[in-house]
Amino acid sequence: MHAALDIFRALGDPTRLRIIHLLRAMELAVGEIAQVVGQSQPRVSRHVRILAEAGLVERRKEGNWVFLRLGKGGDVAPFLSLFDRLAPSASEALWQTADLARLTAVRADRGRAAESYFAEHAEEWDAIRSLHVAEVDVEAAMTALLGVEPIGHLLDIGTGTGRMIELFGQGARQVTALDRSPDMLRLARAKLPEGAGDKYALLLGDFAAVPLESGSVDTVVLHQVLHYAQAPELVIAEAARVAALNGRVLIADFAPHEREELRLRDQHARLGFSNDQMESWFAGAGLLMERVETLPGQELTVQLWLGRRKQAPILRQVERMSA
């Protein structure tokens, strides 16, 4: 009874209800929530503390930022399920829609900052990455993880300068490279082999909304891309969606670190990922974690996570409607 009363008290405030609805959309930083709801960060932090004490919200510190997600406790799930069962009133529907629109604007601002950085540093990007960790070691580990199993249709999400399609494209049946920067795609095209024909498709698009059909890809690669994502779990869910049954998703990125300058200078949205965090996101996307490998570096550690889809691919709502 005590837990139930704490939860009801925590939910008995309009701002805290707005925070819950926002966190149902994606994991967010406290500052992002403050920007969306139009309140000061200290005031939002007080609301977050009440929600966290009731178990409705979990906090995760990352450098100078605090990220929030919905609580996973067994006592909390039944209360959160009420949001699916109760139809909002007209006024509630209005502020929910307005908050989600402002959230989209916040994410767009951050996306534009990252795109501006990419445009300014496109030709230097391979060199910048090599400062973090020896790329030859990362590439060798990725090649070993994928092994001799056929690559099939390869999707390189966030292809950048095209190094991954250069590395794995020859052994693939078909290659799709996705990036949201035209400058990056221009550089990636320069690395395509002569006579490539229609084997290679380079697409301009967002890694949180991959323009491919569900279950259409055999191997998905995300190489040093996920730390730019505002909602990494959504990117992983998209990678899993397009993966065929028994298809593989390979992610190479940083382990958790405290190099705050990478966020400020290089537009990193996340300062690395833990194995527990990644395993949770894989499981939520229907991926079975097969292998994890750690490549320590002098300053930053690179982690490799290899997952496999073991259930039928999830269809987008639009695909269900057109099926």
Rank of each mutant, 00 (worst) to 15 (best):
G215K: 13
G169R: 03
V242N: 10
S81Q: 15
R129D: 01
I151Q: 04
L131D: 14
T143Q: 14
M1S: 13
V302E: 01
S89D: 11
S81I: 08
W125C: 00
A237G: 08
L204Q: 10
D13Q: 04
L304E: 05
A323D: 11
V106Y: 03
S322G: 04
R59K: 14
I128D: 05
F273A: 10
A201H: 15
W281V: 00
L304C: 00
E120Q: 13
M278Y: 09
A188N: 08
Y117I: 07
P42E: 03
A4L: 04
M321I: 15
I128V: 09
E261Q: 14
H153E: 09
V217M: 11
E166R: 07
F67K: 11
H227F: 13
T176Y: 08
P193W: 03
F168N: 03
L187E: 05
D206F: 05
L315G: 00
L155T: 09
V148Q: 09
P14A: 01
K61N: 12
A3E: 13
V318D: 11
I20P: 09
K199V: 03
R173V: 06
L245T: 11
A240M: 02
A190E: 11
A229H: 06
A312E: 15
M289T: 15
R43L: 08
V217D: 09
D198H: 15
L295R: 01
N246W: 12
L86W: 00
E238A: 02
M278I: 15
K72G: 03
A243R: 04
K61G: 10
H268V: 07
E299H: 03
A323I: 06
V302M: 00
A77P: 04
E149I: 05
R163H: 01
A114S: 05
F67D: 10
R263E: 06
A269F: 08
E319A: 01
R49H: 11
L68D: 08
R18M: 04
G197D: 08
A4P: 02
T97P: 01
V133W: 02
R259A: 01
G205S: 00
A52T: 15
L178K: 13
N246K: 06
H153R: 13
